[in-house]
Amino acid sequence: LSQDEIDDDVWDEIEEILLSADLGADSTFELVDTLRERVKVEGSKDPARVKAILREELIELVDPEFDRSLAVDVSGRPAVVMVVGVNGVGKTTTVGKLARVMVAKDKDVLLGAADTFRAAAAEQLTTWGSRVGVPTVFSDVEGADPASVAFEAVDKATELEADVVMVDTAGRLQNKANLMDELGKVKRVIEKKSQVDEVLLVLDATTGQNGLSQAKIFSEVVDVSGIVLTKLDGTARGGIVVAIQKQLGVPVKLIGLGEGPDDLAPFDTESFVDALLEE
């Protein structure tokens, strides 16, 4: 006996899958409405077909056509990458992993430890530098001015004719105005020396709806050009990036898949969506 229409249970299940992936109520309800409309127009009665349409819609929403390349191929000067985000998301680790990727592409890389605040942050970055075989510029002075260290790193990279300089910054919560001002200053001071080519916002995949506010405020302050979604090796799906990409137009460029030097990968829309929908 075929059903006349899609059961409410199916809609509930879809809603639950999306909510559980941290898509958020807004995006979820919107998506389910779109889906209901399409299903009505198509007149489909098969739950499997509904899920196939959902996958299609999600892929379109996440957008495979987005330019997710890193702007690090500049000539005549080092490309400058700044890495920013709230506390503990994986910024320093991402700098290390990304340096590894660049080194593998035969680029000369330099790291700048502009987290002068957190205990052992500069040491942590330096360890990553030696792991992947690149030098790190840091200050011996506890609580040194992060903008100065960042400037010095870019200056040094220019002097050494490096291809890329990556500046790690201290974690800060986006509601802390003074710390956000400080971050803005780090960028402005670097810009006295060079253009900043990439500002990567690191976002922890376990983050819930607060991720949107992180992306908004960091974008306001330092004009984020790409997102790195870390800790996708756990059970979290990172669905908040769907709303972030849509509302702010900032693409996810890279994903973090572990704590090792090779655990960084390009973002792939279809795999992301499939993981999001996995039961």
Partner: peptide, 30 residues
């Protein structure tokens, strides 16, 4: 700041180490 993953993670740690209490961090955020 953790989202929906809180349940799975808490369950895993509860089974893994049978914790006796919880500390919620970064509550100075929004």
């Amino acid at each position: 700041m953790i989202g929906q993953d809180a349940v799975k993670t808490a369950q895993a740690f509860n089974e893994g180490v049978n914790f006796t209490g919880v500390v919620l961090t970064k509550l100075d955020g929004d």
